[in-house]
Simulated assay, not measured.
Amino acid sequence: MKISLIALVCFFLSGSATVVLAQEGVIHYDVIHDMRQFKKADSAGMSNLPDSYLTKHVLYFNPEASFYTNAISQKEERQLNSGQIVGFPLYDVYLTPASNKRLLTNSLKGRTYMIEDTMGTRPWVLSEETKEILGYPCRKATLTNSENKGSLTVWFTNQLRPALGPYLYHTLPGAVLEVDSNQGALVLKATNVELRALTNKELAKPGKGKLVTKQEFENLLSK
Rank of each mutant, 00 (worst) to 15 (best):
L8K: 03
L8M: 08
L8R: 01
L8V: 00
V9N: 07
V9P: 00
V9K: 13
C10N: 13
C10G: 14
F11A: 15
L13W: 01
L13V: 05
L13T: 04
L13Q: 12
L13A: 14
L13G: 08
L13M: 03
S16C: 14
S16A: 14
T18N: 09
V19R: 12
V19D: 13
V19C: 03
V20N: 07
V20L: 06
L21D: 11
L21M: 15
Q23G: 02
Q23V: 02
Q23H: 05
E24Q: 15
V26M: 02
I27C: 05
H28Y: 14
Y29M: 04
Y29G: 03
D30L: 04
D30S: 14
D30T: 14
D30I: 06
D30P: 09
V31M: 11
V31W: 01
I32F: 03
H33L: 07
M35S: 01
M35C: 09
M35P: 00
M35D: 08
M35L: 15
R36L: 15
R36M: 13
Q37A: 15
Q37F: 01
Q37I: 07
F38S: 07
K39A: 05
K40Q: 11
K40C: 01
K40P: 01
K40V: 08
A41W: 06
A41N: 07
D42T: 10
D42M: 12
S43N: 10
A44C: 06
G45V: 05
M46L: 00
M46G: 12
M46A: 10
S47L: 09
N48P: 00
N48I: 05
L49P: 02
L49R: 05
P50N: 12
D51L: 01
D51A: 12
D51T: 02
S52Q: 11
S52N: 14
Y53N: 13
Y53G: 07
Y53T: 03
Y53K: 08
L54W: 03
T55N: 10
K56R: 15
K56I: 04
K56T: 10
V58C: 05
V58N: 02
L59C: 06
L59W: 01
L59M: 02
L59E: 03
Y60I: 06
Y60H: 10
F61M: 08
N62P: 13
E64I: 07
E64D: 10
